[in-house]
Each structure stands twice: as structure tokens, then as C-alpha cells.
């Protein structure tokens, strides 16, 4: 859906998406890195199960919600990609999960 221009030569930043290894560039948000990697669906809706992907890229629409390093409902378009991030498709409503040692 998107390709990177040759002048975009920022440092490569490896991450995983649903376990698959991918590489973004310094300066990418999570949503941009996913689009560059050919990912157009990043979550499904809690109401209907319909697939969604990034829509506004500026923090307004909340359609790029993903799970990042175990934290659900992160806005992919506002979070800067960091090396080693484990990003996951958010399928429907996420599970509420206790922090370790809390119970």
C-alpha cells in the first residue's frame, strides 16, 4: 500500500508484528512502520469484528489501536517505533490483565 522513498535512509529499527520480524526506520510511528511493511489491518472491532487499519495518522480516529509490548489500545500513530517492540493485532476487546504481583 505504501513504499518508502529512496531518500528515507533513517537507521533501521527492527520490531515484530504478530511474531513476524519487520524493520522500520528511525522517525517512524508504529502505524507508519506497519504501513511501510504492507500491513493494512491492525485490529478488529469489539462490536462487529470488522477489520480496521490506520485512517487519520494524527491521533484522532483511534482506528490504529494495537497492542504494544503487552499494553492494549495504544494509538499506533502516536507511538514512536522503538527497537525490539512487540506489536500485535488487537482482536476485538482486549483482555484485562493484572500486573504481576498485584493480586
Amino acid at each position: 500500500m505504501f513504499r518508502r522513498l529512496p531518500e528515507a535512509t533513517g537507521a533501521p529499527i527492527p520490531f515484530t508484528f504478530d511474531g513476524r520480524e519487520m524493520v522500520g526506520r528511525r522517525g517512524d510511528t508504529v502505524a507508519a512502520a506497519l504501513l511501510a511493511a504492507g500491513i493494512s489491518v491492525c485490529r478488529t472491532m469489539a462490536v462487529s469484528g470488522a477489520p480496521r487499519g490506520p485512517y487519520c495518522m494524527m491521533g484522532v480516529c483511534f482506528d490504529c489501536l494495537v497492542t504494544i509490548d503487552g499494553a492494549a489500545n495504544r494509538q499506533g500513530c502516536l507511538v514512536l517505533l522503538v527497537e525490539g517492540m512487540r506489536i500485535k493485532t488487537q482482536a476485538g476487546a482486549p483482555q484485562a490483565q493484572a500486573e504481576e504481583g498485584a493480586t
Binding site: A71, A72, N73, A96, Q97, A98, E99, A102, T103
Partner: peptide, 9 residues
């Protein structure tokens, strides 16, 4: 009451 709620938005 329910620690698993902590991370919810």
C-alpha cells in the same frame, strides 16, 4: 478491588 483493571484506558 480488581488489579487487572489498572492498565485499562
Amino acid at each position: 478491588m480488581f488489579p487487572l483493571l489498572a492498565k485499562l484506558n
